[in-house]
Nucleic acid binder design. Sequence first.
DNA 1: ATGAAAGCGCTAACAT
DNA 2: ATGTTAGCGCTTTCAT
Lengths: 337, 337
Amino acid sequence: MPTVLDVAKRAGVAPITVSRVINNSGYISQSTRERVEAAVKELGYVPNTLARGLRSKRTKTLALVVTDITNPYFTLMARGVEDVAGDANYSVVYCNTDESEAKEEKYANLLAQRQVDGVLLVPACGNVKTIKFLLSNDINVMALDRRVSEVEIDSVRSDSEDGAYRLVKLLIGLGHKRIAVITGSKDVSTSVDRVAGYRRALTEAGLIENELVYYGEFNQQSGYEFTQQAMLHSPKPTALFGVNNFIAIGIIKALHDLKMDVPGDVSVVGFDDLPESMLLAPFLTVAAQPAYEMGRMATELLLKRISGELSDGYQKLVLPTEIIERGSTGPNRNNSD
Amino acid sequence: MPTVLDVAKRAGVAPITVSRVINNSGYISQSTRERVEAAVKELGYVPNTLARGLRSKRTKTLALVVTDITNPYFTLMARGVEDVAGDANYSVVYCNTDESEAKEEKYANLLAQRQVDGVLLVPACGNVKTIKFLLSNDINVMALDRRVSEVEIDSVRSDSEDGAYRLVKLLIGLGHKRIAVITGSKDVSTSVDRVAGYRRALTEAGLIENELVYYGEFNQQSGYEFTQQAMLHSPKPTALFGVNNFIAIGIIKALHDLKMDVPGDVSVVGFDDLPESMLLAPFLTVAAQPAYEMGRMATELLLKRISGELSDGYQKLVLPTEIIERGSTGPNRNNSD
DNA sequence: ATGAAAGCGCTAACAT
DNA sequence: ATGTTAGCGCTTTCAT
């Protein structure tokens, strides 16, 4: 592989001049610029980012740490991140933590070694250890999707409390009085906030004594199992709120296997939504989050933070969710209430 | 940030000894190892991958270049890649080309600068320029999902020709005689191979004169538009084959808007499939590809290639697809045939 | 079993 | 507008 030195010799200049041409920094006369550019082409020279990063302390690399890229919500976010990053000639490394603190730590360590310029992090749990570790290694951190306390950092998320509140209010408006929520881990802010929104709606309607919360995991199986459990509760809930899309799908499958009709017997609402392009027949009533936009905005902010354009104060963006009413919700037909 | 030198001083050894401890190379006495490890801990030392890579010519970074990470088929593949890479302490950079040759070239250049150890590439087109460029920069390349000619490299893909053949045979077995295929770009091997499989099935059944092929793009809109076109064809096809999942969804939507029943009026088959966890009610008959497994295998192979364990000959893995018959296909009810 | 010296390829800092 | 020098943090190579 040719180096700056090879190019410099060929163009009859000093290495630093080559560097200046490539990086468009400093003053270069038109003629030397042309000679250098010609030499670059002739030799097929490609600058070495490692050497560059070692010297300049900038790697032009971001990391996206999500719990599972397979969740279409995160996939779409990832696409938003990469689109903005790519335009700025940044690369994006992605990592899956599966909500595991251990994996999160492992990746944080890896990313510190890699000297990434910034990390877009969907924290695996309420623990701020990872964030502090990254910050102590001079890495900019952007919290995505989830709230963090104890540390001051930029963050972009959607309004979970409000989305949940409006979903549950919609159910209450349809006459539902016994609404159960099936959620993920207790120490994740999305869980906490959505349950809080649920509670606020119930309280407002004087239904808080009917509160029924199941804490599990953010996956289909957990949604499936807790639906079975919820349906053993007496009296049965007439509506279920699945706190993310995987849980909601688990709920629908469980109800199907229990031979219960949606929305005839039970109404179902969810969070996140699936991109339209993946759905044959959108069915689930949801609070949809602007995942792609969140990825974009978060990355734009992070790049600004990295370049020092954002020196004062921390940005905390909370985007609204959109309630999309579809076939999975209907009026409460249970006469006993 | 502490460096090897800081650690070395603290442990009372030379920098190289620290390096040996960290990399588990060479002979180290138990006592110095312990002293070094203690110093590492006390200082919170994190090795700098850039410096390491600059010297050792290994970055422990892979790149995954797909056309669109948002396609669940590629998402799942990405997850397979990252799982294997992460276990080996490799990082994965992802890039979206949107089937654009220009973007593919741009990313190839970026990745060469980054000195990645290997690239898992879903080629945007039949052009081998990118691959040659990467190889000429000493980067190992693994072709994913698509066939490449002209260059000898490792590849992992699924059997498109066979999957298409079996799907179309299934339709023929159901009495369909006018089967149209809606596919993507002509210069992508998956397009070519799936159309070839379609043709083989038709030819075998003596139906090749009914051949009806629409070349478009691999997205929902293209599937939608060409379905409208296909339905203007006289006589109308009684079955449609969408060559990937986005196209198939576009087909279903178009038929819905045309008030045609699936499978009553038209049967539909697709490729790729969506992960079960995303589907409320799986409906589409498909040739499913083992996307996650493909990602895993490709990465395992690539890592072996990088470490030199695979020196002789090139691996060309072709995995079978699985035909999953669901509600979108039924017997041909058109009496005119 | 450990160390000294050198250099990977680049750019910051300081000339001129 | 261009060049010189030095050094980023690590590991290869060659000693001892």
